[in-house]
Computed example of a mutant assay.
Amino acid sequence: MSGAFETSTRRCDKEGCDLPGQYRAPKSPRALDDYYWFCKDHVREYNLNWNYFQGQSEAEFQQFLDNATVWERPTKPFGRSTQEQKWARHGVDDPLDILGANGTNPEVRLKSTRKLPPTERKALEILEARETWTRTEIRKQYKSLVKDLHPDMNGGDRSDEDRLQEVVWAWDQIKDSRSFKD
């Protein structure tokens, strides 16, 4: 637990010392992987005199502190990212700027005005209705679709029967919903 390398065959690097050098100490702050090997007494003496910042100016010391507070990663101010960086965040590479500036502009993107359950949103798609419509408006749309798709209105043609079943299912989702005004 002392940090000694028991199997080391080196001699202490302190002049005049013949004890085994079982403890390592970095030679300089610039070469932390290059070591002196000392005996226990001399490594203690070396460590007491060790100063990582020895020989550095005040500006270099301040630069070290600034880098250390952000884990030595460069930082950028918020809100100054380029359009290319916005697309890169989504995994899109657009070096020719084909997608343009409006690709991530929130005013241009179509946004849902309210949250609806997925079944009700799917029902609106099937009925070709908008989420801002009232239940009465959606019912009118439902009725017109049923008239267009019903076999009795198409001379007995049953080719749209699957679509008719989807429309009926969609109306069942909307008519019992609390998300739409009457």
Rank of each mutant, 00 (worst) to 15 (best):
G55E: 07
F5E: 15
T75C: 01
L164I: 01
P117Y: 10
I126H: 00
H150I: 04
Q62W: 11
P151K: 04
F64I: 11
P106V: 00
V167M: 00
G156N: 09
N102Y: 15
G103H: 10
I98A: 05
A170E: 09
S81H: 14
S144P: 01
R121T: 13
I126Y: 06
A129L: 03
R130P: 03
R121M: 04
K181W: 04
V167I: 03
E6M: 00
G79K: 03
I126P: 06
A25Y: 02
Q165N: 15
K76A: 13
Q173T: 02
N51W: 10
T119D: 15
E131H: 10
L32C: 07
V92A: 06
V146S: 07
V146C: 14
R109N: 13
P74Y: 10
D66P: 01
Y35I: 00
F78Y: 08
N154M: 10
R11G: 06
L96N: 06
D148N: 12
Y35S: 01
R109C: 04
T113E: 15
T136I: 01
G91W: 08
A31Y: 13
E120Y: 02
Q141G: 08
R44L: 09
N47F: 07
I174T: 10
P117D: 15
S2T: 15
S2L: 07
I126Q: 00
G79Y: 06
R30H: 09
G91M: 02
D13W: 08
G21C: 02
A170P: 09
K143H: 09
W37M: 01
T113R: 14
I174L: 08
V168L: 13
G155S: 00
K86W: 07
L145C: 06
K115C: 07
E131P: 01
N51T: 12
S112L: 07
K143T: 10
L110Q: 13
R11K: 13
L48S: 12
E131N: 05
D157K: 02
W133N: 08
V167C: 00
G16L: 08
T136A: 05
F5H: 12
K86L: 09
R139E: 11
T119N: 11
Y52E: 05
D172C: 04
E15R: 15
W50T: 05
P151L: 02
P74T: 10
Q173C: 05
G156L: 09
A59Q: 14
Q56T: 13
Q56Y: 06
M153G: 07
R163P: 00
E58R: 06
